[in-house]
Design a protein around this nucleic acid. Structure first.
Lengths: 343, 343
DNA sequence: CCTCGCCATTGGATCGATCAAGAGGGAGGG
DNA sequence: CCCTCCCTCTTGATCGATCCAATGGCGAGG
């Protein structure tokens, strides 16, 4: 606090504290970083001086010497307009909070989808960040491989689908388990003809989630043929797919790979004057804000993003410790937020 | 690129480049920061060396010497669960992108609502950031005053409602104009009994938006008495308020201070079997994802967050230049995203 | 041909912290 | 009584960039 009132605009340095406390610079440094090395009375004296001067170590100087910035790079991907996938918001918040507790801050940088490596290179070379958190591990995304080749420490939110040999740390949510959870929820309610609306076949995540639906259906000896549709992740596609399925397969419930698609289903049901929730059940995926506020509420699979953040930070701490500890992948289980759309 | 293949894990330094190019360190520094000072042939030689070695200036060292980190602090506030206000997502993305173009990165830190100053102090004292972007300028938030007293450079997204004397830079969106836009849109469609559902009276922002509705109504000599309700920003409150208004005031349209409240209205209309859009029009505020994907779409006032980001960064650049240039406040106009809920 | 002035370029000091050794003093063992 | 060891604290060097003042070379003018 103190220095803010002084005329000089430069914050106090370690040397200032040392002088005031009548000790050497190194002793002040130890008081901050290795208090157990000091005699209790000396420690107290130094801490008093720190308090009086309002001293806080200069990060740039510390970073320069220790070759660590305590910053974690995260590319901020904006949610697509017109979709319901607002997971980034919750995820980023969790990461910021968890990382903060471990002494790390999050540095955001912009990313364009057409240049997936943009930004990483510069931050890495200028040693601006200690590590990265990589989020979009969609098919063919070269980030992980590239970062590995650069020996850059990073942790991925998302499995390395296209490369089972990948050795980097990752954390993911079991999408199949989520879809299974949703399907079983509907099965328990007595539904037998449960349709699936998911993403196009080239999406590993979509196929993973779909497999959960298949698994749950087959476990009860129920057929899945003709009950699945794979489309783009837009409301319009979901609506269209639902419409076709309603005509051709007469399902009594829908499980969707995203809340966006689920909204499309609600739309299609509304078109026909069908009361969703009562007549036909719908379950979405991601527990977006949309699921939460749509009248009645949309039952949706909720990813444990807070846990994901905790695991990511834990993995990062392992990577950045000496010697680095590369943990294996972590797979977390989602939960189901039950609302009126499933009856 | 080159150094990634070397055995040594330390990136090349300015001295390495200097040696390779056969010039002094200062010349390399100039090649990077003041190329116009060098003779063209020298510049080319140095740039070649930089390229060959894959050199990028070490940020910590640069930050230490120049006393600037080129980082902007931003407290990341998570959207409330169960509300539709996902503006943070769009806003942060815009800021990250705009700041990036000016050579700044965004450093996120966590904030708890009960300790509004948490995080600021530490970042400021450790000179981790050059400036802050402050977003939640709700009533009684001490951030702005506190930062001013610390002489910390910052720009606010939001007017200093409770202190007209405040001299800091700010950027805001004209909420009154937004509500007026929405109301006029409905008036043009022939509605005359247009209700308002807004926030509690102690919200400056809420009262500002409300004034736009009043202004538009009065401009056409239409009454507003009995047509307004002020509640908490939740779906349930909006639903309840709409229900009461429907019984007591019989409006043919609703203008709401948020998409969350508008969703409550849709809910109330659904309860009564009223077809929103056709029978009764509804307009929300913020153009959240919810407004975009709800069946038919919710007409909503859209804040020009991209422009806001541009103005914020512009103001920051002024503040951080030497000498600092403190711009006045900037007030931007929102637009209206028209969808089916308004007919 | 020599001197002056200008501009590109150089070498040393510096930012503020931590690292790596080393110094001083008291306790314990021979 | 002396020596060793340990514990606490100090001193000088260092991280890699930029600032500052000074040097060198070159062309123009006398």
């Amino acid at each position: 606090m103190a220095w803010s009132g002084r005329l000089s605009l430069t914050p106090p340095t370690l040397a200032d504290v040392a002088e005031r406390a009548g000790v050497s610079r190194q002793t002040v440094s130890n008081a901050v970083n290795n208090p157990e090395l000091l005699r209790p009375d000396t420690l107290a004296r130094v801490q008093d001086a720190i308090e009086e001067l309002g001293y806080s170590p200069n990060r740039a100087a510390r970073n320069l010497r220790t070759r660590a910035s305590h910053l974690i790079g995260l590319k901020f991907n904006q949610a697509q307009e017109g979709t319901a996938n607002a997971a980034m918001d919750r995820f980023v918040h969790s990461v910021v909070e968890t990382a903060g507790e471990s002494g790390y801050h999050i540095l955001l940088f912009a990313g364009t989808t057409d240049d997936p490596l943009g930004g990483y290179d510069d931050l890495l070379r200028s040693t601006a960040v200690d590590a990265f958190i990589v989020t979009d591990t969609y098919l063919g995304n070269p980030q992980a491989a590239w970062l590995t080749s650069r020996r850059a420490p990073f942790v991925a939110f998302g499995r390395p689908w296209d490369n089972p040999e990948a050795t980097h740390a990752w954390v993911d949510v079991d999408g199949a388990a989520g879809a299974e959870l949703a399907t079983n929820h509907l099965l328990d309610k007595g539904h037998t003809r449960i349709a699936w609306i998911g993403w196009r076949k080239d999406s590993f995540i979509g196929e993973d989630r779909r497999s959960g639906w298949t698994r749950a259906m087959h476990a009860r000896d129920l057929p899945t043929t003709g009950l699945a549709s794979r489309v783009e992740d837009t409301v319009a596609s979901g609506r269209e797919a639902a419409s076709v399925l309603l005509d051709e397969a007469r399902p009594s419930a829908f499980v969707c790979a995203s809340d966006t698609l689920a909204m499309g289903v609600l739309h299609a049901l509304g078109d026909r004057g069908i009361h969703w929730g009562q007549d036909i059940a719908v379950v979405g995926f991601d527990d977006s804000q949309v699921a939460q506020v749509v009248p009645g509420g949309l039952t949706s699979v909720r990813q444990p993003l807070e846990e994901v953040a905790v695991e990511l930070v834990k993995a990062l701490e392992g990577l950045l410790s000496t010697p680095p500890v590369a943990g294996p992948g972590v797979l977390l289980s989602p939960t189901l937020a039950v609302r009126l759309s499933s009856g």
